[in-house]
Amino acid sequence: MFRILACRMIVPNMHILTVEAPAVAREVQPGQFIIIRAEEEGERIPLSVSDWDRERGTVTTIFMSIGRTTHRLARLRSGEYLPTVVGPLGNASEIEHFGTVLLLGGCYGIGSLYPIARALKEKGNRVFVVIEARSSYLFYWEDRYRMLVDGVHHITRDGSKGIKGHIGRVPEILASLGEPVDRVIINGCTFCLKRGSDATRALGITTIVDLNPIMIDGTGMCGVCRVTVGGETKFACVQGPEFDGHEVDWEELSQRRKTYMAEEVIPLRTSKCEEHMHGEEHERKEKHGQAAAPGEPPGRERKQPQHTGEVS
């Protein structure tokens, strides 16, 4: 059992969880993830690690309350326990002296990029961060980034801060930096990863994405996390989670993440008095390409499909 030290909402629908897991804290590196169960009957879901304290033996993750498991997780409070926290899983980010690196983060990715930014700075890189959200009130950790990196830029859907639009407008930021960028690293939902990769493809900048397929064991055993990268099947849990964003088969990944969409709503229909979160309609399709198929009419009943797949 793993004791929760803190679990609270950091911005609407986004939660920060700090849990005691000394063995994980001892080894974890930027870019890695953990798998948790929120309760005994719960599923195993992967969450990217956003920070840690090796001395205190704690691990911090930021997650979006989006499906059954994360709803449950969001209701837990300090002093309660998680039955499973296992990790660190996946390969660590490749951290070297690249030169200038642009980090692109949306939703939980804003958190999980933080250790990567820190490690890149330690290696002497110039690091710029672009954070993306629907509106400025959904940004978090801006102050942490400001103290760490060489520049923080914003993209908001409603134009309340920075550039108005979505992540596809990142080339404008790249152009405005006044220096060539050697590498782009994107963390966030599948949609954000895909749009970001599309935006850098024409510019020929190496773009690394942190993939978020459905997982169960996270050690290579079940194979549910397979993704096609450069025409070949890879197991994201042991061969990833980071891959070349220009090589990923995004359509396949989005489809695979939707596998259990129908099942996700079953407990909502059958459960009696669980305090449901209300589906936040504004976070629907644009933010999570996986939420609704193209051309599908919007509807707030449709839950985010991430259920098993929800990842960090």
Binding site: E41, I216, S271, H307
Partner: peptide
């Protein structure tokens, strides 16, 4: 694994789905 370890056959009492 979905079925046995995660008890998918008892979904939704257990939370891991199986089609």
């Amino acid at each position: 694994t979905r079925l046995n370890l995660m008890k998918g056959y008892l979904f939704p009492t257990y939370h891991t789905p199986i089609k």
